[in-house]
């Protein structure tokens, strides 16, 4: 049985009970999909501080609109649309309130072409720098990169969710890695 077939069968067995209000089915759905949904929120906004709140909002929307999902095979793309829209709304709301934009994330990654040697940094500091670098990636590279690294998704799975060709996903992952390497040159301990 292929992964895709298994996913569809799992979704079919999950959606109907969840639509009938079976709490265990809803909990299982959240447990199975929350990881990548959070990844999409992070990839779309580029901000970790929004992830918890937006994810909570997404699942409350899912709960309210679950009846509108008629085809269980579309569960992933349906969730993706809700998560992405909620993330975009949250980003725009944050900008309207005048909070700091995405520009802040590149702070500290380097100082005018003379990056500090981060191989000397402690684990927590290194992790923070890496996350800032991922946040600083352009959104179109960040999205496949986060899905790949957070969920170990294959190119085919990522392309299916994002509506891109497998070749485009591959190219974006190569470029994301190259950009990260350039941003962090000499900073990762080996």
């Amino acid at each position: 049985m292929t992964n895709a077939t298994a996913d569809v069968e799992m979704a079919q067995g999950l959606i109907s009970p969840a639509q009938r209000g079976t709490r265990a089915a809803v909990e299982r759905m959240i447990r199975e999909h929350d990881g990548w949904v959070r990844g999409v929120i992070f990839a779309t906004t580029g901000r970790r501080d929004l992830v918890d709140d937006v994810a909570q909002h997404v699942w409350s929307q899912v709960w309210q609109r679950l009846d509108s999902l008629h085809d269980p095979r579309r569960l992933r793309s349906w969730l993706y649309a809700i998560a992405r829209n909620a993330a975009i709304d949250a980003s725009q709301e944050r900008k309207r309130r005048g909070a700091v934009g995405l520009e802040h994330v590149a702070d500290g990654l380097g100082d005018g072409g003379h990056p500090a040697p981060l191989r000397l940094l402690a684990g927590g500091e290194l992790r923070e720098t890496l996350l800032r670098a991922v946040e600083a990636l352009p959104g179109l590279y960040r999205e496949p990169f986060v899905l790949r690294h957070l969920e170990d998704w294959s190119y085919a799975e990522i392309s299916g969710l994002l509506g891109l060709s497998v070749e485009t996903v591959e190219t974006r992952l190569v470029r994301a890695r190259r950009l990260l390497r350039e941003m962090l040159e000499g900073k990762v301990d080996r």
């Binding site: 990844g39 970790r48 992790r127 890496l130 991922v134 690294h149 957070l150 080996r190």
Partner: peptide, 18 residues
């Protein structure tokens, strides 16, 4: 270099996003 970067970023992402 790419393998190290991948490993570190993956750990950081999974740790940061719960």
């Amino acid at each position: 270099e790419y393998a190290d970067l991948d490993r570190e970023v993956q750990g950081a992402l999974r740790s940061a996003l719960g």
